[in-house]
Computed example of a mutant assay.
Amino acid sequence: MKLYGYILSIVGTRILAAAAILLGILQVLELLDATPEILVRGLGLGGVAYHALLRLPRMLEQAAPLAVLAGGLFAFGQLAREQAVTAMRASGVSVYRLLGVSLMAAAGVMVIDLMALEVVAPRADLALANWWRATAAEADRAERGLRAFRSGDELVVARASDERGDRLDEVRIYRRDGEGQVNERIAAPSATYGAEGWRLEQPSLIRFTEEEAMASSAEALIWPTRLRPADVRALLFSDQAPSGATARRALGGVGSERPESYYAVRVHRTLAEPIAVLVMLLLAAPVALANFRTTQGAVLSAAALAAGLTFLVFDGLLTALGEGGALSPFLAAWTAPAVFSAMAATVLLRMEG
């Protein structure tokens, strides 16, 4: 047990150190661009710190795979140079057991990454967008424009006026028949969300038939839709990638403004992105078996680093193809993790054998 604790501490501390360095670099690059505007607004160092805090979840999402790759390379390289791996194998501890213990540290990073991606980041993005708009000068505070999206079979054009997402202005709802032709248009100055759902204020309705267009109006009308304020916030207030839960609701017809392929890929990426952390550790694992008395150690370290960066590029390319509908969502999300995991396992098996 002491041996496993030692391995876990070596791998864990190296991953944490790499994560701290990468997050620091990303924060510096972000703040170089944002700090002048924050200071101009009179928000001071507190505003700089608040901005950095709200951007941290997205940066953690970016840094986690590289942190595990770099931390794994440092940890496995140290164990190989100290001949610790040789001693473990001589005492009956296989490299697979070493990798299994190391995966516990990577799994912890994976869980943190998943929580940041699905829970913390969407809330932080919304808070940052609202804070940034609220602290802008009145003259620079641009009015939100009209946005178009789908809700079920309906096409909706509206402007979000409330950061809580429970009020829409200048609402236009276009209903279609089974052939996709518009057969009704509802226009209302505003819509508010309450216990009964969305209430359209003073709506005017036009129903189209083959012969004529029939107009009518009402004081109020309940809009039967599954759209919720949380969906409005995700659609109209955030420019970041949606969470898995939001993507699943979009696929269910609640509300979407992008193709179905985009949301289908995002559902798969909910797990595929955190699993990239484990793939990075597998890519670094062969370094533990390297001989650092020759050039093998340096060559394997460079190859693992190149493989990790190639994985990120390949994964991003396939994801973009899937989101555009050129590749199936499953293949777009899982091909890169499967291929690079198989490559790393093959190298490890050959070196161990």
Results as ranks from 00 to 15, higher is better:
residue 1 M to D: 07
residue 11 V to C: 02
residue 14 R to N: 14
residue 14 R to K: 09
residue 17 A to Y: 04
residue 18 A to D: 03
residue 19 A to I: 04
residue 21 I to K: 06
residue 24 G to R: 04
residue 25 I to E: 09
residue 26 L to M: 09
residue 31 L to M: 11
residue 37 E to G: 15
residue 37 E to S: 15
residue 40 V to D: 12
residue 40 V to I: 00
residue 41 R to V: 06
residue 43 L to A: 14
residue 44 G to R: 01
residue 48 V to Y: 04
residue 49 A to T: 09
residue 50 Y to C: 13
residue 55 R to C: 09
residue 61 E to I: 05
residue 61 E to M: 08
residue 68 V to F: 01
residue 70 A to C: 10
residue 74 F to S: 11
residue 86 T to A: 15
residue 87 A to M: 04
residue 87 A to E: 07
residue 91 S to Q: 12
residue 92 G to Y: 01
residue 92 G to R: 10
residue 101 V to C: 03
residue 103 L to N: 06
residue 108 G to M: 06
residue 109 V to M: 12
residue 118 E to I: 10
residue 120 V to G: 13
residue 134 A to C: 05
residue 137 A to G: 02
residue 148 A to K: 09
residue 150 R to F: 07
residue 158 A to L: 07
residue 162 D to M: 12
residue 171 V to G: 02
residue 174 Y to P: 01
residue 176 R to E: 03
residue 187 A to Q: 09
residue 199 R to H: 10
residue 204 S to Y: 10
residue 217 S to Q: 11
residue 223 W to F: 08
residue 232 V to W: 04
residue 234 A to G: 11
residue 240 Q to E: 13
residue 247 A to I: 00
residue 259 P to G: 15
residue 267 V to L: 01
residue 270 T to A: 15
residue 273 E to V: 15
residue 275 I to Y: 13
residue 298 A to V: 13
residue 306 A to Q: 05
residue 318 L to R: 05
residue 329 P to T: 11
residue 337 P to E: 07
residue 339 V to G: 02
residue 340 F to V: 10
residue 340 F to D: 07
residue 343 M to W: 15
residue 344 A to S: 05
